[in-house]
Amino acid sequence: MAPIVQISNLDKYFGRLHVLKNISLDVQPREVVCLIGRSGSGKSTLLRCVNFLEEPSNGSIQVDGVIVESHGRGKEHRQLIHDVRLKTGMVFQEFNLFPHMTVLENVIEGPVTVKGMNRAEAIALGEENLDSVGMLFKKDEYPMRLSGGQKQRVAIARALTMQPRVMLFDEPTSALDPELIGEVLNVMKKVAKDGMTMLVVTHEMGFAREVADRVLVLGEGEIIEDAKPSTLFSKPKDPRTKALIDRYRTGGR
């Protein structure tokens, strides 16, 4: 099967800092890939390069047949980035819901404004997705009235309502109180079960072990390990992976 996401020879520099070093990665349709690694390892940057929230310094990204090269300029390049963003949904650590819109308005904003979908159709689709994350009952509330876990579930529904081919999760539970993490992870499990291709940057080792098809370990801007969770968690090859896993094990997660 052709990979639905293909990252080829990707480099990213922040000034003189080399944060991603010649990374190549294929993700198959319906695959759930977790990216783990210490903070500063480049895992979030890698994820943000997929939808060009960070412009890669070198290399190319392919998402569902759309190929975007780094160093692109002009209208055509912007159109390609736009196409990639329509094919990817993103969930942020800080939720980033639009505070001036209700829950439902948040969810239908993309389909209506960006895709030009008619409002009734967008509402039907939005309500369906809010229902699937268990947030339909708050559809007329403003985000400030929701808990962190509820906000993140709405953010997931917002991304899903764009009907993306791939979902990108950037530490979706890191800003949550411990007791709220479970409800978000459960929704993510459901999304995975429905067959969504997912790239997940996370510190939740339990989630990675249970849900991921593959776990990638990043260290100093490189993929230092790429394995099935069963292999990776029981027999980590790289000492850095072992240290990482041990740290979370003693941390109780």
Binding site: L86, F92, E94, R158
Partner: peptide
């Protein structure tokens, strides 16, 4: 983060300004 969220759902800079940034 607001601009990034708008960009991630495919909004153009103009749409982001009109729909997300200016109202706030």
């Amino acid at each position: 983060g607001q601009r990034e969220a708008a960009a991630a759902i495919g909004m153009t800079p103009g749409q982001t300004m009109r729909r997300v940034v200016l109202p706030q």
